[in-house]
Amino acid sequence: MMRERTWRGLAAGVCVVLAAYVLFLVVLAPASLLDVGLRRATDGRLRLAQARGTLWSGEGLLEVRDANGHAIGKDLSWSLQMRALRHRRLDFAVAVDRAGEHFPLSLSMHGVELSDLDLSLPASAIGVAVPRMAPLGLRGEIVLHAAKFSLVDGVPSADAVATWKGAGSALTAVAPLGSYELRLGGVDGSLDATLRTLDGPLRLDGRATWRGSGPLALAATARVDPRYRPQLAPLLRMIAIERGDGDFVLQPGSPLGGEMSRGHGEKP
């Protein structure tokens, strides 16, 4: 009996030591592992370049990349908040840009949650993230404020707004085309987006719905002021179906894709 207890105690001790060793290795795991995870999860679209530190405290350059390796990046830093470990989740304080305010990011077995995120990017980032938009040469600035966003157990929820300021395109001399607001909210496990025009000669309005999986359900229209129609109609015909009198209907997946096969100005 004494020998059995001794072996049990020894086995328990070995397990504790091994667990501590594994935890030690995880804590010291290099931040570059985040780049590996992002690259695999996004087919190379998102990368963490110049990663320094560990998984729990580090910094790097978060990049959006296209297939040709062109990238737009933002400085990123993070640190683990140790007090959250007892709740079986990982809470990080994250900052975008070196002088940016930190926002909370929480990871758990159920999903991800964040709040109070402020981010600005050049509009050209849209072309990097969505390659078929790249030939439009989008210009201006995208400013994002996310009061909250979560994807928990496959159920999305959000309260966010993105503003496209001084929107433009390399394919037209009309600048700016306008400023636009995309508001995102979560309803019954789906994300609903509303697009509206703040100002400018090109008016965009629309709605979109995403349920966490499957395609984006999009309905959007564009209207051009009469004096700008000669300059803007050719651009809009590349991404929408013309209905007449300066009205266009934007189609999902249409930019420089399927809708172009109908020909410029050809109506269904």
Results as ranks from 00 to 15, higher is better:
Leu138Ser: 03
Leu138Lys: 12
Arg139Tyr: 13
Arg139Pro: 07
Gly140Lys: 11
Glu141Ser: 09
Ile142Ala: 09
Ala146Val: 09
Ala147Thr: 14
Lys148Phe: 06
Ser150Glu: 13
Ser150Asn: 08
Leu151Gly: 05
Leu151Val: 00
Leu151Ser: 02
Val152Pro: 14
Val152Ser: 07
Asp153Ile: 00
Asp153Leu: 00
Asp153Ala: 02
Gly154Asp: 12
Val155Ile: 11
Val155Thr: 08
Pro156Phe: 00
Ser157Trp: 02
Ser157Ile: 02
Ala158Leu: 04
Asp159Cys: 10
Asp159Trp: 00
Asp159Ala: 06
Ala160Pro: 06
Ala160Asn: 08
Val161Cys: 13
Ala162Thr: 12
Ala162Gln: 15
Thr163His: 02
Trp164Leu: 13
Trp164His: 10
Trp164Cys: 07
Lys165Met: 12
Lys165Cys: 07
Lys165Ser: 11
Lys165Gln: 11
Lys165Pro: 07
Gly166Met: 03
Gly166Arg: 15
Ala167Tyr: 10
Ala167Pro: 15
Ala167Asn: 07
Gly168Gln: 06
Gly168Cys: 07
Ser169Pro: 14
Ala170Thr: 05
Ala170Arg: 15
Ala170Ile: 08
Leu171Thr: 06
Thr172Gln: 05
Thr172Val: 02
Thr172Gly: 01
Ala173Val: 14
Ala173Tyr: 09
Val174Lys: 09
Ala175Asn: 04
Ala175Ile: 10
Pro176Val: 11
Pro176Trp: 00
Pro176His: 01
Leu177Pro: 15
Leu177Asp: 12
Leu177Trp: 01
Gly178Glu: 14
Gly178Lys: 07
Ser179Cys: 04
Ser179Glu: 07
Ser179Asp: 03
Tyr180Ser: 11
Leu182Thr: 15
Leu182Arg: 08
Leu182Cys: 14
Arg183Trp: 11
Arg183Val: 15
Leu184Asn: 09
Gly185Val: 15
Gly186Val: 06
Gly186Cys: 10
Val187Gly: 02
Val187Asn: 09
Val187Pro: 15
Val187Glu: 14
Asp188Trp: 06
Gly189Leu: 05
Gly189Cys: 06
Leu191Lys: 01
Leu191Cys: 08
Leu191Gln: 02
Asp192Trp: 00
Asp192Cys: 09
Ala193Pro: 06
Ala193Gly: 14
Ala193Tyr: 03
Ala193Met: 08
Ala193Phe: 02
Thr194Leu: 08
Thr194Ile: 11
Arg196Ser: 15
Arg196Val: 11
Thr197Tyr: 01
Leu198Ala: 02
Asp199Gly: 12
Gly200Phe: 01
Gly200Lys: 00
Gly200Val: 03
Pro201His: 10
Pro201Ile: 07
Pro201Ser: 04
Pro201Ala: 06
Arg203Glu: 08
Arg203Leu: 04
Asp205Met: 09
Gly206Phe: 01
Arg207Asn: 11
Ala208Asp: 13
Thr209Ile: 09
Trp210Val: 13
Trp210Asp: 13
Gly214Phe: 05
Pro215Phe: 01
Pro215Lys: 04
Leu218Pro: 04
Leu218Asp: 14
Leu218Gly: 15
Leu218Val: 13
Ala219Asn: 15
Ala219Thr: 06
Ala220Ser: 08
Ala220Ile: 02
Thr221Asn: 05
